[in-house]
Design a protein around this nucleic acid. Structure first.
Lengths: 192, 192
DNA sequence: ACACACATGTAATTGGTTACATGATTTC
DNA sequence: GAAATCATGTAACCAATTACATGTGTGT
């Protein structure tokens, strides 16, 4: 990822890379500082990037990195390797799968959280789309960036559609459960 | 996950749990033996499950596990905790994102691989759907199982749709690239 | 006789997060 | 002068895969 980002724009610092990530590949690839800085050192040691101190624009002294020819080659080599997908781990789906082992309200809460998150990432991606179209449409990578972005949009939209029907089903189930309860406990006439 | 599976069906061995996983939650939650057996030991030590040796059905002597009341409580407690999503890491999208840094054929290859995989998981899930409808439709968990399954179906379908248009775009780009090459090198009249 | 499915486990290694530590510069 | 942002890094810890190790019963 670092090599790729430096290929698109060189002379970035570790801090900057982290920020660039959040604004571009962030929704399908995240890295922490604890990952980036050691990685930069390693890449430097392997001669895939070069460092250059730069007049501290912000706070501390800052290192800017760029690709070396070897780094460029390593990037292309890596790109050609078939991607591997690691075993999926979706805690949301797992909890939903076991929904029958607990109260319906629990699953409903998960679903609402799911919707909230997806709605906000949808908004974020749409914003990135607009900004990117304004500023990057002339860059060679642009078509590919749009491709990944469109993928995200499609996935999120289908997820949100699904979540609507899922939520409808669950709230209905909860209603009938409450109804059962209240008719059963009717003779007690509870106040709260 | 183990607690959940044992809640649905008790008296399962580690080996069996692994198999059950593959046939049910497999496409959104995977575990390896190196994860399951230590976890079973830990759960046993914590008193959340109990072991009982069972007449070796297959090869070696076999341990069957079931939930204890404490395990049941722990499961419900866990289900109530808001799910957390860990940082996404989609190598496919990352490689596609950097598509402009390499030959179009590379990205096309990734996309084809993507389609192949998704088509086969689609087929698998559809098969699970049919089997589950035949055999589990009376179980209390059934509606939730269908929910997660429908989610998978929706995601895969939208991914495949997207991949068609993406592939169309890339093959077109490759064609025009080839065309350029041949017209540019026309005076040389290459044979291969 | 051989392979395959049943069955359980461990060790090495990797990959990655989280929290901590530090500190300068800009902005309010 | 406080807070936010720029900026770099390390250490502790955890989760999880992979490969290895072992062994039996069943079907062909």
């Amino acid at each position: 990822m670092i090599l790729g980002l430096l290929a698109i724009e060189s002379n970035q610092s570790g801090y900057e890379i982290r920020k660039t990530v959040k604004g571009s590949v962030g929704y399908f690839w995240g890295e922490s500082y604890g990952q980036i800085y050691p990685a930069l050192k390693r890449l430097l040691a392997e001669g895939l990037i070069v460092a250059r101190p730069s007049g501290s624009s912000g706070g501390r002294k800052r290192q800017e990195y760029s690709l070396t020819p070897a780094g460029r080659a390593a990037l292309e080599e890596w790109l050609a390797i078939p991607y591997r997908e690691d075993p999926p781990r979706d805690e949301f789906l797992l909890k939903l799968f076991f929904g029958a082992e607990t109260a319906p309200s629990v699953s409903i809460a998960h679903l609402r959280r799911f919707q909230d998150r997806y709605r906000s990432t949808l908004a974020m991606i749409q914003q990135v789309e607009v900004l990117s179209q304004e500023r990057n449409s002339n860059q060679p990578g642009f078509p590919f960036w749009m491709l990944t972005l469109k993928f995200g949009l499609a996935q999120i939209r289908s997820a949100l559609e699904w979540s609507e029907s899922a939520l409808a089903m669950l709230t209905q189930a909860e209603q009938s459960a409450l109804h059962h309860e209240s008719t059963e406990a009717n003779s007690d006439a509870p106040k709260a």
